[in-house]
Every structure is written in structure tokens, then in C-alpha cells.
Design a protein around this nucleic acid. Structure first.
Length: 199
DNA sequence: GACAAGATTAGCT
DNA sequence: GCTAATCTTGTCT
């Protein structure tokens, strides 16, 4: 079933943790790509210096101030997109960054999007994930709880044991690193690789 | 109007 | 392990 809107109105860190093990559905053209969310980060507007929404509302980040359950896609470093889901109530400026997914179906299409890169390197990072799923700034502001949306999150009934979830500092940010807001599945090889997996 | 910096990745050493 | 690639956004003139 599709996760209801109220799922995204919980505390941001709760949403980030509970999104692990959920199914990300991506539709475009006649294609449907399915993947399992294995890594997320929480960004909390009002007390988080690393959050885009911390300073003030701008045209770029205004979507983060919408009510929870819409997508927030932004372009970074000239080359790459990052895919977020807004959480909380209107005006709060919270979001969960989806950092990595495990492909479930449509993997050959994802490979094509990734120039034939496959296996655990297919979508183990926010920029790679967007490339594999063909997500770009046109996908900003989609309602992930809507039946008609091109991006949906479904609960497949997969139970994640709390001790399967590892919590670490966030990655690649220059401020606010004291927060342990990154969550990923401990034994999943599709999470972000390399040095960042130390605590 | 112009400039510096960024929630990253790929490719080379 | 390190650095270039590359462009949007926000801020300042």
C-alpha cells in the first residue's frame, strides 16, 4: 500500500528511520522502476545549520516549507541532483534526503541511465540514485502519497529490525556534523561506500 | 550583472 | 587518496 500523507507528518528523524525498507516507485514514459530505500538522512529546518531551509525561505528551498509528503529535488555541484521528501507541517522546513536504494525491478533500465554501471554501484549515493531513476528538477513538488504521482513510496510490509539500522554523522556537509541524522541498513551492500561508513 | 560556494561523483595517481 | 568537472543559487555591487 502507498504510505499515507500522515506518515510524513511525524518527526523528521522518525520518518527518516521508517523510510528504510520501504519501496520507492518511479514512473516515467511507460516504465515503472522499483527500488528499496536503504539509506536516508534527516534535515531539520529550524535548528540545523546544514539544512537548506535553516537560514530563510528562498525560491530554491520553498518546497521544503510545504506540508510533508512532497518531493524536493535540487541540483548540486553543477552535475548532480539530490532527491528529498519533505516532512512535518507546512512552514517547518524539514526534509529527508534519500541517499541510496537497492534496485528491485527495472534494473536494466536503471543500468542504461547509469551508462551500464550496475551492481552495488548503481544507486549507492544521492546523485547516482537520481541518475538511475531519471529524477530531475521537473520532479520537484510531486506528492509521493498520491495514486497518480510519478514518484510514490509504498510499504511492502518489510519489517526492519531496529538493530539492523546504523546511525552515523551525515555526509559531505560542512556544518552541523554533530548531528547523528544519517540512517542506513547495516548489512546492505547498496549503501554509500567508502570511508563514511565509520561512525 | 558578477562572483563564490556547494547535502557529489568519476577518474587518475 | 586526491582533484577536476560543472552550473544553480544566493549575496553583494
Amino acid at each position: 500500500m502507498i504510505l499515507p500523507k500522515k506518515f510524513y507528518l511525524q518527526e523528521t528523524t522518525t520518518v527518516a528511520k521508517n523510510l528504510l525498507g520501504k519501496i520507492l516507485i518511479r514512473k516515467y514514459g511507460s516504465l515503472v522502476l522499483k527500488s528499496l530505500i536503504v539509506e536516508t538522512e534527516a534535515y531539520i529546518g529550524n535548528h540545523d545549520p546544514a539544512c537548506h531551509a535553516y537560514y530563510k525561505i528562498t525560491p530554491r528551498n520553498q518546497l521544503m516549507f510545504e506540508e510533508g509528503g512532497v518531493t524536493y529535488v535540487y541540483f548540486i555541484y553543477g552535475n548532480y541532483f539530490c532527491f528529498n521528501i519533505v516532512t512535518g507541517n507546512k512552514g517547518e522546513g524539514n526534509a529527508v534526503l534519500i541517499r541510496a536504494v537497492e534496485p528491485l525491478s527495472g534494473e536494466s533500465e536503471m543500468m542504461k541511465n547509469r551508462k551500464n554501471i550496475t551492481g552495488e554501484n548503481l544507486a549507492n549515493g544521492p546523485g547516482k540514485l537520481c541518475m538511475a531513476l531519471n529524477i530531475n528538477k521537473n520532479d520537484n513538488g510531486l506528492k509521493v502519497y498520491s495514486q497518480n504521482s510519478n514518484i510514490q513510496i509504498k510499504d511492502a510490509g518489510i519489517k526492519i529490525n531496529p538493530n539492523e539500522i546504523k546511525t552515523t554523522k551525515r555526509i559531505g556537509i560542512s556544518q552541523g556534523e554533530e548531528f547523528l541524522y544519517r540512517y542506513f541498513l547495516k548489512n546492505n551492500k547498496f549503501v554509500t561506500p567508502h570511508k563514511f561508513n565509520r561512525l
